[in-house]
């Protein structure tokens, strides 16, 4: 029963933070702040989704040690977690750099060292 409660909490955290990312995608004014919401919140939410699966599969394997597909699933989900954790911030970094090169500047920016540097060149 404790396991079920933990699973519900993890799943709720995942859904809430993914939803927060989507809300931020629509509420923030420009592409950089949207990237903030989209990257941080969806990465965090998806990590908690994988945590849910890992706890679920781990508990099932603990109760039925003969069923090896549960352990297999936990390990594959862990690999998916690493893939998400490595690729998502790097993709956001590439998109932000592309946005700045295209000429989208941050709205209401108080200072912009990168634009200063590009002007100098």
């Amino acid at each position: 029963m404790i396991v079920l409660t933990i699973l519900y909490i993890l799943l709720a955290v995942s859904i809430i933070f993914n939803g927060l990312g989507i809300i931020g995608l629509h509420r923030f004014p420009d592409v950089y702040t949207r990237l903030h919401a989209a990257t941080k919140c969806t990465t965090f939410g998806t990590i908690f989704m994988t945590f849910t699966i890992m706890v679920y599969g781990g508990a099932m394997y603990y109760w039925y040690p003969a069923q090896e597909q549960y352990l297999n699933m936990v390990i594959h989900t862990f690999v998916a977690l690493i893939a998400i954790l490595v690729t998502n911030p790097t993709g956001a970094h590439a998109l932000a750099r592309a946005a700045h090169r295209v000429g989208v500047h941050p709205e209401k920016a108080v200072l912009d060292h990168l634009a200063d540097k590009e002007e100098k060149e």
């Binding site: 931020g24 919401a37 709205e107």
Partner: peptide
């Protein structure tokens, strides 16, 4: 990361931003 997500939640709800590239 936990702190970051609550920070983004706060900014999404209040819209309190003062952005810049440093």
């Amino acid at each position: 990361m936990v702190k970051a997500n609550f920070d983004v939640a706060y900014r999404v709800i209040t819209g309190n931003i003062r952005p810049g590239i440093v």
